[in-house]
């Protein structure tokens, strides 16, 4: 037995890091609150921490979604990674979770081993993610608005609180990204390398490292796209958006369902947009992203099914 199938995880982790770290620090980087270099370093450390400390629950969910062997996991990982890479090239903040679940479902459909109950739960969570984040975003925005309008403070103190807050919630967001999304990277390998002594904890650590690799090498484009693409965000809005995203994703990390940080972030930004009158929302951009959300799992499903037919 070799570790070669893990190369699919490296690819998927790189794609996820490049894509999803934008959701965590993209708004802060685009607002020039923190430099890209500092953001990626902080993000990488926190992703690894989140993956190791709370990443195992989601990994079990993927393991039970369809029957896998070392060939199918490699095919699924590469299919999901290709789908995500394609969307990154289009600068669309889509979901790595959708991509991976689509790929696993593709293998499951081809081999007739899909766990429909588990898949249904995941589909429900996909719908719940942006809606939940939208609602959390509205509540967080209202609370922070109250705080900043009621408490007397100077502009430097205000900006310092928001700035410091953005870095803190960015770190929290990176932690939840690692905790929730490491399953997308190495969750599919859970139980596949027991003969080599690789436990889920080891896989979580490796997944965190792979995500960090993507964060450090190829996340700039998406950071700018997320920061300015959906709505022009000021620092307070950025703080609310990332906080809401992180809370939402953390909830699902505890539940053990890998969800999309992209869905959560877009939901939160829409929530802020609704509260502030919606005039800043770029509806055309939201429409494109929504279509990409539908297209992503289909693309990875088709790719993995085709890969299964050819290689397995």
């Amino acid at each position: 037995m070799s570790l070669l199938p893990l190369s699919g995880g490296v690819f998927m982790g790189w794609a996820l890091g490049a894509l999803d770290s934008a959701n965590v620090f993209g708004t802060a980087v685009a607002s020039r609150v923190i430099s890209f270099r500092k953001a990626t370093l902080l993000c990488s450390v926190m992703v690894i921490l989140g993956a190791v400390l709370q990443g195992e629950a989601g990994m079990h969910t993927y393991r039970d979604l369809a029957e896998q062997n070392l060939r199918t996991v490699l095919v699924a990982s590469v299919a999901a990674g290709l789908a995500v890479t394609f969307m990154i090239l289009k600068a669309l903040p889509i979901s790595a979770s959708q991509s991976m679940v689509g790929a696993i479902a593709g293998i499951g459909l081809a081999s007739d081993t899909v766990n429909w109950s588990g898949l249904t739960t995941i589909l429900i969570c996909w719908v719940a993610t942006p809606i939940g984040s939208l609602l959390i975003g509205m509540v967080v925005y209202k609370l922070l608005s109250l705080f900043f309008t009621r408490v007397p403070m100077g502009i430097l103190t205000r900006d310092q609180l928001i700035w410091g807050g953005l870095v803190v919630v960015g770190c929290y967001g990176a932690y939840t990204l690692g905790a929730n999304n490491v399953a997308n990277v190495t969750g599919i390998y859970s139980g596949q390398f027991t003969a080599l002594g690789l436990t889920d904890l080891h896989l979580a650590l490796l997944g965190g490292l792979f995500i960090s690799f993507g964060t450090l090498t190829y996340s700039k484009k998406m950071m700018i796209a997320v920061g300015t693409g959906i709505m022009r965000l000021d620092a307070l809005m950025s703080l609310v958006a990332v906080t809401s995203m992180a809370i939402t994703v953390h909830i699902f990390a505890i539940v053990g369902i890998p969800v999309s940080t992209s869905h959560a972030l877009v939901g939160a930004i829409c929530g802020i947009g609704f509260l502030t009158g919606g005039s800043g929302l770029k509806l055309e951009r939201i429409r494109t992203i929504s279509l990409a959300w539908l297209f992503t799992p289909l693309l990875s499903l088709i790719l993995s099914s085709a890969g299964y037919a050819i290689f397995c």
Binding site: R32, I155, D159, Q160, I162, W163, A235
Partner: peptide
């Protein structure tokens, strides 16, 4: 300094 404050 936060960029917005600096400009202001």
């Amino acid at each position: 300094l936060y960029p917005e404050s600096r400009g202001d």
